[in-house]
Design a protein around this nucleic acid. Sequence first.
DNA 1: GCCATCCTTTCCGCTGTGGAAAGCAACGAC
DNA 2: GTCGTTGCTTTCCACAGCGGAAAGGATGGC
Lengths: 97, 97
Amino acid sequence: MTTVAPRFDVVIHPPPRLQVCGLLAAVDTMDFATVRDSLGVSDSVLSKHVKQLEEAGYVRVRKATRASRMRTSLALTAAGRAAFDAHVAELRRITGG
Amino acid sequence: MTTVAPRFDVVIHPPPRLQVCGLLAAVDTMDFATVRDSLGVSDSVLSKHVKQLEEAGYVRVRKATRASRMRTSLALTAAGRAAFDAHVAELRRITGG
DNA sequence: GCCATCCTTTCCGCTGTGGAAAGCAACGAC
DNA sequence: GTCGTTGCTTTCCACAGCGGAAAGGATGGC
């Protein structure tokens, strides 16, 4: 039984962004550097993908000074979580969940 | 517990090909026209995606004369099924299945 | 022969992508 | 204050992948 309406989302689907959403879905918040290292991508690549997720309203980017250094933390928004859940539901439907 | 080793497959991941594999995974064989109509794409688009799956060794294309008309039927190969299962496993892993 | 069916291939313009490098803001060291 | 470092961001660029339209077979009915 599905709780969200399956809906394919082209913003989420590409591998790097699917991974970012997958990571963020499991936590409240995650540092930019942690995500970057988890994906094994460069700063610029992650930054660009995060920007797309942010412009879609799926990810919130918060900059805070921590330990005397600026850190950027990422989190899924409510809309982002909903879109991710719907996309995952659609993937399950397509792949014969 | 996983039965196949999760492995991301860039040949399978793009939406049209993921859908083709998803359809074929559920049956022994499916006609080209049926797949085309299920995806809602044009002949040329499906043909090109099928070709990529075929060149990867994932789909077998069989042409047979049926009802006095030539029909093309598609089926996953063993390698195709294995790759699809592995890709689905990886998607589940990424999305927190 | 001619036409219709059923794909396949080519052509073309567009979009998306990653790598490299330059940019930039914030901070501590001095 | 200026210098260098850290931590992203943006720009530039070259390239791969995509779909639509149209031309191209191949086959069979007439």
